[in-house]
Simulated assay, not measured.
Amino acid sequence: MSFEIGTDEEPQHWHDDVDAPVGSRLNWLRAAVLGANDGIVSTAGVVMGVAGATSDEGAILLAGVAALTAGAISMAAGEYVSVSTQRDSERSILKLEATELERMPETEFDELVTMYEEKGLSAETARRVAEELTEHDALRAHAEVEFGIDPDELTNPWHAAWASLVAFTVGALVPLLVLALLPASVRVPLTVVVVAVALAVTGAISAQLGFSNKPRAVLRNVTGGLLAMGVTYVIGMLFGTHIV
């Protein structure tokens, strides 16, 4: 994908039109895209597997609803736990770093100078930068350079959890509604088509929001989703005589 990039005469940054900071944007984007894709693929896989085993509409819908409910809760809980763990780690790192700055400020200052030298600054420039940043906010300077942590932008577990919950539910409703509304004669092939389109859309949206290549994202999403559906449908057909 392309973005408008200017020149020195007419400056234009590619990220000027981005509303949120890229770091936080990618955080919720990851949760939302993962949730939507998981909702579409996992629910479609479940209902296609059951559809391959039986034509009982009630059983298919029940399986779909169960997959949606369990999946949405699981995704939200998983995101909350994992992001909370990351946030706790970030807070612990900041606390330890603050203690080091209090107990051995000179050692920490020399460490900061060394890190800037390793980034390519001259010894004199590195020392001057370290002095100015230490005077402004020593903890922030060390946290960003040493650990890539912004003390004011710690990861938010609730954002990730809600993004996953909502995205998974929306994604899961796609195959579920198709199976519920379509007659049995065209249920399976049209479900495949609709799910493929939905995965293409989520792939394109994720690429648009994440500044990446659209065709590659679309191909990756659609291929993985169709593969999962095909495998579960075949398994359902193989064991269908025992389920009916």
Rank of each mutant, 00 (worst) to 15 (best):
H15W: 15
L29A: 08
H242R: 14
R91S: 08
L121K: 07
S84G: 04
A70V: 12
T114D: 15
A143L: 07
V41S: 00
V83P: 01
E144G: 05
E132K: 15
E90K: 02
L96T: 14
M104C: 11
E153Q: 14
G23V: 15
A172S: 14
F211M: 06
N156R: 10
G64W: 00
G58P: 07
A126L: 04
L238M: 13
I149R: 03
L173R: 02
R140E: 14
W162M: 14
E9W: 06
K95Y: 10
V174G: 00
A66Y: 07
L190W: 14
R103G: 00
S92D: 10
G35R: 01
T241C: 04
S84P: 00
L34I: 11
V22C: 02
G58W: 06
T191N: 08
Y116G: 03
I73Q: 01
N27Q: 14
D152G: 03
L29R: 04
A217E: 09
K214I: 15
V33I: 14
V170Y: 04
N221K: 02
H242V: 14
D19T: 14
A207C: 10
V193G: 07
A66I: 06
T241L: 12
A59C: 01
G35N: 05
R128I: 12
M115A: 15
T155S: 13
L133H: 05
A98M: 11
L190Y: 14
V195I: 13
N221E: 10
V33M: 08
D17Q: 14
Y80M: 07
G240T: 09
A36K: 02
A180M: 11
G171S: 12
V33A: 11
G224D: 07
A172V: 07
D8G: 02
G23E: 15
A72M: 11
A77T: 12
H142S: 07
T85G: 11
A36P: 01
T134I: 10
G71S: 03
G39N: 05
A141P: 02
L96W: 04
T169Y: 03
Q12E: 10
T107R: 11
S84V: 05
G64R: 00
S206I: 06
G224E: 07
N213R: 11
N213K: 11
A32Y: 02
L181K: 07
S24G: 02
A67G: 09
D88M: 08
A228L: 06
V218K: 03
A66P: 01
L179Y: 13
V47R: 01
A163K: 03
A207G: 04
V145S: 06
V174L: 11
G224M: 12
F3T: 06
A180C: 07
L62T: 13
L121D: 05
S164E: 10
F211A: 10
A32S: 12
G45L: 02
A20Q: 15
E79I: 04
D137Q: 08
T223R: 08
E153I: 09
E111V: 09
H13E: 12
A32W: 03
G203A: 08
V113Q: 02
S92E: 11
R103P: 00
A196I: 06
L226W: 06
